[in-house]
Amino acid sequence: MMNQTNQTKDALSCYSPSVEIYRYFAALWGCAVTITGTVGNLMTILAFAFDPRLRTRFNVLIVNLAATDLLYCTILQPFSIDSYLHLRWRSSELWCRVFGLLVCLSNSVSIFTLCLIALSRYLLVAKRVMFDRVFSKRGLVLLLVSAWTFSLVSFGPLWSVYVFVPQVCTCSFHRTRGRPYTTILLAFGFLVGLSCVGAFYLLIYKHVLVATQALLRYRFSQQSSIRKPTPAQETNDSSVNSVITNSCGQAELVQGIEAAGEKSCQSSQSSLKTLKTEPPSEADLAPPTPTNAALASHSTVAVDEKEIKHITRMCLTVFLCFVLSYVPFLLLNTADKLNHAPQLLYMFFTNLTWLNSCINPVLYAVMNRKFRQAYHMLLTKAAEPFTHLSIFS
């Protein structure tokens, strides 16, 4: 009986002289991830709930990604910190299995959500009708429920092989006992899934590049029509209308709220109608001063083009951070089949994956004006009671 108890304790230990000092760095790093990730992801969810400008179909996917990160940071990360600090798993074996399942579930749903974000961005700029069908309110609910259900069904069968893994000092599936099923899951989830995300962003980049060229042609055509109106203005204006309609359809990529995009489109088109129905004044014909209507349409197009790049850059950055945080760990596990690599290297690459669960809110704050304003509003409201206390004191 005593021998069995000692064997169990040894199986739940990851002690090694090589990581005895490193564990304190890992514990501090884990605490920073827990605090930053919990506060940041919770603020993302609250911002979506309280700011009407953020309640869009696209941001539903952002909130789902925040929920998976919050699950990891708030519930799972503290147990990882404890195991690193004491170099052993101090909870029950049952919770070790639950922990391993939840970690795999969180990672899998994150990958699915990144795929849906990339797909939604591509459909919105390239195939708007299909976007409205696939990412309707009912479609979004179905997609998100499917992501969680599929992930649970995929990793649920590994219940018997979730164990404490000494190399990474945390609970996960056994490296060899779950093969080849685990190999197939990892290949499908990381290689196929993330490759699809990369392909969608390449398509988005190509489409935005074509749209940018079209906008430049529109500006040139608009300036020419203002300076030298010709009898063929009717034909030229119809082509300009087409460019404006396309650019406004893509503007919804950044605006988030579809109604706002439609208003900007209607505004630009009405400005063009004014140019067609009213003869230009002397001020209009005097180069290089354009009309107010032209300035408004130019301003709208410039903002649309600029924000299209911003939102695409933000989504791409979120995806790249996910890839960069996991690629070293995956490459090490793939290359070191015989477990010859130092335990310190395994633990460091595992700690690097923790970054993914807390970095997204920081990216939203830096790269998205609406999220930044919503975060500021939440922090201001949270600080109000302390402000009143300092005034009375």
Rank of each mutant, 00 (worst) to 15 (best):
P229Q: 01
I184Q: 08
S120M: 08
P17S: 03
Q269P: 00
L186T: 13
S238T: 14
R227I: 14
V210S: 11
S160K: 13
T300Q: 06
C14N: 04
F371V: 02
Q250R: 15
A214Y: 10
T68N: 02
I244Y: 02
M2K: 13
L253C: 01
V362S: 07
L186W: 12
N3W: 12
L295K: 14
P287E: 11
F371L: 03
Y72R: 00
G193I: 01
R138W: 07
A283I: 07
Q77F: 00
Q77V: 03
L76R: 07
S271D: 12
Y122F: 15
I311L: 12
L389A: 12
R175Y: 13
E234D: 10
R90D: 10
P52T: 10
N333V: 04
I62T: 15
N246H: 09
Q255I: 10
F25C: 05
V208N: 07
S390C: 09
P157F: 06
V301N: 03
T36M: 08
T170M: 13
V327A: 15
P361T: 00
L87W: 08
F329H: 09
L28E: 02
L331F: 11
Q4L: 13
A126V: 11
C171S: 10
L71W: 03
Q373M: 12
V98C: 05
L344S: 09
C171R: 00
L87R: 15
C315F: 12
I359L: 13
F319W: 15
S299T: 13
N351W: 01
F392T: 15
S160I: 08
